[in-house]
Every structure is written in structure tokens, then in C-alpha cells.
């Protein structure tokens, strides 16, 4: 009798586990579940659909249908001359944003890395441009770049740097310049804040030790600051490279991709192919290629910065 009762309890228990299902999951898996299911559903599902779109092509018969075409769409993107132009544009924009932005941010962070009073106040002020919607910041800069009555042409002429108005949006290089300067302005608070925190975490006695060893300012920077700042610097580079490579709204608001297609980056082309040309399979393939490109660039940055060091880079 007692044996039977135990069996009965066991089977009840197993039924309960099976019915509820979830109770067989451990506590931590239960906590993971909503988030993982959500991301899988909203990002993973579309990601699969993206691959499907990439590998198929529309067939127009009586009804709209699709057929499997393998890598034809990817090949179509890679053999389109414009795609390589847009790739070049994207890399040029990214190089400009990093090449101007990172030294500026590093310089500001190094200069401010001292016991200045009212840190709370000026750090808040330094943060502000990044918190304004990018489009709004870009509109503010566009207003200043207007050739005929913009304040930038006025100041350049007044200071004697140029003699006549620059038609900022008509030339390829000047159009790039407007987009890059605006992006650097937007990203500077972000980069400076992260770098300042990184500098803050370097203990002072390391500088004292270096000084005792006879290291001047340059050597202190090279052998103390730079190696210990590497994680923060990597983070700043990776974040801004990612934002520049996927960049859309700053360039689109500032130049609209022009003059012509001179500043059309890949993200803008994907948008135009999808929405304006209705070429979703091409856009999907281009989107996949952009992901690969981003992975390659991030890989180069992380590898380049973590070489000859045992510091952990995240």
C-alpha cells in the first residue's frame, strides 16, 4: 500500500512537471527565457527571412511568387559598379570620422584629465550634443553650412581663410566634410566621456614610478597612459566605427547622399533599393554584405589594438 502511494506521488509529480513544462527549467533559465525568446523572435526571425530574401528572386506569373536563386543576388550586388562606389564612400566616411574624431577626443580627454573643479557641471555640458537626436544636430549644422547666408562661410571669409563662399553641398569633398564634421561633433561627447573614465582608472602612482625611472611626459604617455587606456580606446573605436559603418541619418539629412551619389553610403543605398526601387532581394543581399564588412572592420580594429599586449579587450 505504501509502495503504491509513493508511486502515485511520483507519477503525480512527473505529470505536474510535464504539464507546466516551465517548472522543469532551472531558475536562471526561467529568467533568461522572455528576453531570449523575444530577441530570437524579433531579430532571429527576420534574420532568417533576410537570408531567404537573399537566396530568392521574385517570379512574376499569374501571382507573385519567389524562386530559389542561390547566391545570384549577392553576385548581383558584388558585380554592380555602384556598390563598390558606395563601399568606398562608407569606408571614406568611417575613416574620416575615426581619423578626425579619435585624436580630437583623445586630446580633449588627456587635457581634461586633471583635478578641474566643477567636474559634474562640465561633464554634463560635454555630454549634451550626444543626447540630442542626431537628425536635429545635423539640421543645426546644415543651417550653419548654408553657402549663401551660413555662419561658417561668413566666419571663414572674415578670418581670411577663404576668399569666396564655399558651395559645401556641391563638391564631393566639401560634402563629405560637412557630414564628417557633424558626426565628429555628435560623437565627441561619447568618446571623451569613455576615455576620461579610462584615464581616471589609471592609478597615479604608476606615473610617479615612471617619473622616478626618468620618463618624461612623452614616455609616460607611451608606456603608462596608452597601454592602460587601450581597453577604453578600443571601446571608443569599435563603437564609433560601428556607428559610422551603419551610418544613415546624419549623411542622409546633411547631403541626401549627394551631390549625385558622391556621399551615398551603403545604408542609404539599401534604403533606396528597398523603398524607392522595391528591390528587396538586392537590398537584403546588400544588408548581409554590410554585416560581413562590419565584422571585418571590427576584427581589424580589435586585432590591431590588442596585438603585443595581454590586456583583455572587450
Amino acid at each position: 500500500m505504501s509502495v503504491n502511494l509513493a508511486n502515485w506521488k511520483d507519477s503525480l509529480q512527473s505529470i505536474r512537471t510535464r504539464v507546466s513544462g516551465l517548472s522543469s527549467l532551472s531558475f536562471d533559465k526561467l529568467l533568461l527565457l522572455p528576453s531570449v525568446v523575444f530577441i530570437t523572435l524579433i531579430i532571429g526571425g527576420p534574420a532568417l527571412f533576410l537570408i531567404y530574401l537573399t537566396l530568392t528572386q521574385d517570379v512574376f506569373s499569374l501571382f507573385l511568387d519567389t524562386r530559389f536563386v542561390g547566391f545570384q543576388n549577392i553576385a548581383a550586388v558584388l558585380t554592380t559598379g555602384d556598390f563598390w562606389l558606395f563601399t568606398g564612400n562608407t569606408l571614406l566616411y568611417t575613416a574620416g570620422v575615426l581619423g578626425i574624431g579619435i585624436p580630437v577626443q583623445l586630446g580633449i580627454a588627456l587635457a581634461l584629465n586633471t583635478d578641474l573643479p566643477y567636474r559634474r557641471v562640465w561633464q554634463t555640458l560635454l555630454l549634451i550634443p550626444w543626447t540630442i537626436p542626431f537628425v536635429i544636430s545635423t539640421v543645426m549644422w546644415k543651417l550653419m553650412f548654408v553657402p549663401e547666408f551660413g555662419v561658417i562661410n561668413y566666419l571663414l571669409i572674415e578670418s581670411g581663410l577663404i576668399e569666396q563662399q564655399i558651395q559645401w553641398f556641391s563638391g564631393t569633398w566639401t560634402a563629405y566634410f560637412t557630414a564628417i564634421i557633424t558626426t565628429v561633433w555628435i560623437m565627441t561627447p561619447l568618446g571623451t566621456t569613455i576615455l576620461l573614465a579610462g584615464l581616471d582608472s589609471i592609478p597615479d602612482d604608476l606615473y610617479e614610478a615612471a617619473y622616478l625611472d626618468g620618463a618624461g611626459i612623452w614616455n609616460q604617455f607611451r608606456h603608462v597612459t596608452l597601454p592602460l587606456l587601450r581597453p577604453a580606446l578600443t571601446a571608443v573605436l569599435v563603437i564609433q566605427a560601428m556607428l559610422a559603418l551603419r551610418g544613415f541619418e546624419i549623411i542622409y539629412t546633411m547631403t541626401g547622399g549627394g551631390p549625385g551619389t558622391a556621399t551615398t553610403v551603403i545604408a542609404i543605398d539599401i534604403y533606396q533599393e528597398m523603398i524607392q526601387n522595391g528591390n528587396s532581394h538586392y537590398a537584403a543581399a546588400e544588408g548581409l554584405i554590410l554585416v560581413v564588412m562590419i565584422l571585418i572592420v571590427l576584427g581589424i580594429i580589435v586585432k590591431g589594438l590588442s596585438s603585443d599586449t595581454d590586456l583583455e579587450v572587450e
Partner: peptide
């Protein structure tokens, strides 16, 4: 799941918005 989170941060929104737009 941490890998999933990281990948989600790396994928540019424009790429994933192509299929999301259709869905």
C-alpha cells in the same frame, strides 16, 4: 544568449529592418 545579445548589437539596424519591414 550573451552571444545572441552581442550579435544583435553588431547587426546594423538597416539590415534587419529590410525583413522586418516586409513582415
Amino acid at each position: 544568449s550573451l552571444l545572441l545579445v552581442t550579435v544583435t548589437r553588431i547587426i546594423p539596424p538597416i539590415t534587419i529592418l529590410v525583413p522586418i519591414y516586409f513582415i
